[in-house]
Design a protein around this nucleic acid. Sequence first.
DNA 1: ATGAAAGCGCTAACAG
DNA 2: CTGTTAGCGCTTTCAT
Lengths: 354, 354
Amino acid sequence: MKRPTMKDVAQAAGVSLMTVSRVVSNAPGVSPDTVAKVEQAVRRLGYQRNVNARNLRQKRLGTSTIGVVVDDLANPFYALMARSIEDEAHRRGCVVLVGSTNDEPRREREVIAAFTARQVDGLIVVPTIGSHGFLRPAMEAGTHVVCVDRPAEGLDVDTVTVDNRDGARHAVTHLLAHGHSRIAYLGDRYDIWTQRERYAGYLDAFSARGLSADPALVRHGLRSHLEARLALADLRALPDPPTALFTSNDLITLGVLDAMDDLDGPERPRAAGHPLPMAVVGFDDLPLAKLLDPPLTVVSQDPVAVGSTAANLLFSRIAGDRSAPRKVILLTRLVERRSGERPGHRPDLPATPS
Amino acid sequence: MKRPTMKDVAQAAGVSLMTVSRVVSNAPGVSPDTVAKVEQAVRRLGYQRNVNARNLRQKRLGTSTIGVVVDDLANPFYALMARSIEDEAHRRGCVVLVGSTNDEPRREREVIAAFTARQVDGLIVVPTIGSHGFLRPAMEAGTHVVCVDRPAEGLDVDTVTVDNRDGARHAVTHLLAHGHSRIAYLGDRYDIWTQRERYAGYLDAFSARGLSADPALVRHGLRSHLEARLALADLRALPDPPTALFTSNDLITLGVLDAMDDLDGPERPRAAGHPLPMAVVGFDDLPLAKLLDPPLTVVSQDPVAVGSTAANLLFSRIAGDRSAPRKVILLTRLVERRSGERPGHRPDLPATPS
DNA sequence: ATGAAAGCGCTAACAG
DNA sequence: CTGTTAGCGCTTTCAT
């Protein structure tokens, strides 16, 4: 009924506990004969070494456990990222603890505390807002941390992000090149770093042409599908409504697409060309984007690359790399399908220069 | 530089180690004065209790760690499920280890071994094929296990699945009701339980009408997007091609949709009504399904319900429930959009009886 | 090649 | 209320 220990195995094999330890650790200097005896006892009892007890004594190798802390594990972007981190960890014989923060600093702290209390060797974190000085003690105690998706305030550590600003700029430039000038910005909470960056990119695209965005077309703080829909309804009611939309994450893109579909009614004639009432370009790719009518143009990031880069960074730190913190910025890609175009309009500039 | 221990805190606070232990554990019977002294020392040193060491001694409460083992964490279904399990765990002060098996029995074993070696209190597992007798020793040692998505061969434990067979039957019945009779089945590996069930449901729908499926229209073993595309091309080349498709998971659905889109070319006239060359009903909902043309009809399962049900089952086992293993079967829902219909055809039977 | 003793960081079980 | 002793399951160090 109880879990067998090395002591039990030793007794069963008629050797000392220390010999069992050696066999289980593949340590040299045990007679083949004894090894066989012990291994048989191990199998007979179904013995498995207690890794936690081992780590308590032998801290040279760490716990072979890392923690991954994301906003929301269910978000496809983070799910893909977590999976690629998990693959890297598995290759190295590590296990991974995961936790979602929901973007709540308090929950982030709880999760991280629970992880460090279990002596993780390192942490890959999507930081929420606010100072991350609370990580200092853990880091001094030897826990390595790598930030992903956004930098942590007040913490100079390895960080892997994508060039959000550049990606947004490309998206909006694409819309401008296709003759749109009244382009709305629909974004999530402005206090989230990625959203600030994307908004800055939106503005950049206008200034690069000597234009400026109309503040009346800017909506920040859209937290849900529903809020995105509401924002769209609001924009359409304007005396001079936008002709194009830049949506700064997948949830918002989904919301406005849905809203357009509904507003027009299920029986709306779907003419060839461009059945949507407005052009749309969104941040983040979606599985069926290509099959929409018109196919959806998006800025896509590569979550697998983000994850594996972060994991590699973390594992080299764990392996002893003490060089200066690295800031890796990955590129996004504008996937031009058709939702950003205007039927019959000839773009005046290539959307993706060089 | 090194991690402070209780001993360090005791020294800093001028009390015994045991007193620190009491304060850190909120044990009663320590003078408010001493508590304050200790708490200050804790803060000053940035002390955090080593949970692994604690668990070594105090096994009454377990390790407050559970393991979640899925096919592929990046799969939206499992990501959602994992997230809902994580929420339940967090509520109870537990952390969760995750691992992907890739449907490989060997990797499943490695992952599970790594988890049990860390003394997890319980495991939520999406079992791969093959006998799971190897879990017996761990279970006897007190590790509780709950299976999700599919039952484990040779292991009588709590299991949470959805009624795959019923879901598939509904989907195909819907197609039959809309006048289709040449309905192809495109499925993943037949050795996966869910796929066998779904195929059985496909057959059921025919026999319920006194019909039988044409074996020439059945394709098993489609492992990827690409293979699904190939299978579709193959079916279309048949002398008497199908008029409708039942696709038995999201990856396959995506593949055939994509293939149809390409085959018809980007310039295909998108007439109102039903621009797809064949009707399609798929297992698993997709985020943009509603916005396709025609909107995609799917069988949807609720991953969040699956996850929270499994988590609740597991935590009651951990809390001491020793009743007989439960088999929970959740229902699917046929989300009727339009891709399963035939323009102008009047269904001869309600697709969802009662 | 094998074993005995000490101790990792903590808590249970007793003292005072 | 506080401290002492033992020991969780294992590895280190030092014998033999």
